[in-house]
Simulated assay, not measured.
Amino acid sequence: MTPDLPPEDWPHRAASRIVAARPHRWHVQVTGAGPDVLLLHGAGASSHSWARLVPDLTRRHRVIALDLPGHGWTRSPRGRARLADVARDIATLCAQEGWAPEVVIGHSAGGAVGLELARQGLITPRRIVVVNGALEDFRGAAGVLFPIMAKVLALNPFTGLLISQGSRSLSQVRSILASAGTELDEAALAPYARLIQRRAHVDGTLAMMAQWSLEDLNRALPGIGTPTLFLHGEKDGAVAVRVAERAVAAMPDARLVVLAGVGHLAHEEAPAEVAEQIAQFTAGAAAE
């Protein structure tokens, strides 16, 4: 295996590369051709989370999926996980690589990052899509972000590392995701089971959780004029639909589609439906 890269059987591994853009060594996957789309996963996940959506997106776009700071195979310094810093560092990476996203799609915490990019004017996409957006601060130990790492920490509070392997690990991940209203097959569960056995990934996720604050972003929502689509699974047990409803009400050009029968990982549970919603929403962006 190439140093710093995911294992050979990782989803879309052929598209993986490492890009140094201070202060991070980013793991990115770039595929397809056309207007740029930037994919931002949620806390506790990695770029693999988009694997089932990428084939559809690459029919019309160059798709850029990255691992957020400290997540997956992105190596990051400590203390660099605040929302504003994450957004600035992603913008630095995009500028260095010549990427100009016309569409930004973010899941959970990645949705907050996408909106923060627009809030600061760091990237000026024509459309933003927020999937099950985590747009509230933590409440208690579990919080409202993608809850895997908080629950892993509860299982093993001294190391923050899930030690179990194989089928037991898959079973634990399945149980954790079920609490977020999500049901995935074994192929989709496997990457999460591997991620939460990586100490660097666990530490990076906990660092994001520790530094996460959305007060400034929520106050600024009325000033974000980029047309924004919120997609939210009706069964989401991690982030309630009312969070998206409040955001849509605050923003000048936003709408919400509630997806029946799916939970927090709507884009993995119902990729075809999510892809169709995105295609309809972004169809006219390039012509504007």
Results as ranks from 00 to 15, higher is better:
V241F: 01
C94L: 15
S76A: 13
A220R: 12
S167K: 14
V274F: 11
P3Y: 01
R25G: 08
P23C: 00
W26N: 11
L40G: 10
F230S: 05
A142D: 15
D9N: 15
L5V: 10
D253G: 09
E136T: 12
L189T: 08
R199L: 10
L162G: 09
S171T: 15
E268C: 03
L5H: 14
T228S: 07
R62E: 12
G223N: 15
V173D: 02
G237H: 03
M209F: 06
E186S: 11
R17A: 07
P147R: 09
V104S: 00
E273M: 04
E273G: 03
V19A: 04
A21G: 10
A249F: 04
A51S: 15
G263H: 01
H267P: 05
L145I: 07
V144E: 15
R78G: 14
H24C: 05
L265W: 13
R219W: 10
L170N: 14
D67A: 00
Q120R: 07
S46D: 15
H71W: 07
D36W: 00
P3A: 02
Q211G: 12
A180D: 09
T124I: 05
N156I: 08
F158R: 15
W26F: 04
Q197I: 03
Q280E: 14
G223M: 10
R168W: 05
E269L: 06
E268H: 12
I148G: 02
H267M: 08
T31I: 13
A254K: 01
A14F: 07
P147M: 03
M208T: 14
G42A: 11
M149V: 10
L153S: 11
G111T: 06
A285S: 11
F146C: 14
A65Q: 11
G72W: 00
L170K: 13
L184T: 10
M1N: 14
L57T: 07
D216K: 12
E245Q: 12
A266Y: 11
R59Q: 13
R59C: 12
A272P: 02
V257E: 14
G204I: 01
R242K: 13
E215L: 09
L259G: 11
S47E: 07
R168V: 12
L39D: 06
M1E: 15
Y192W: 13
W50Y: 10
P77Y: 01
H107K: 01
A154E: 13
M1L: 12
L38P: 09
L66E: 08
S47F: 08
M1K: 13
H267L: 10
V129E: 09
D85N: 08
G114H: 06
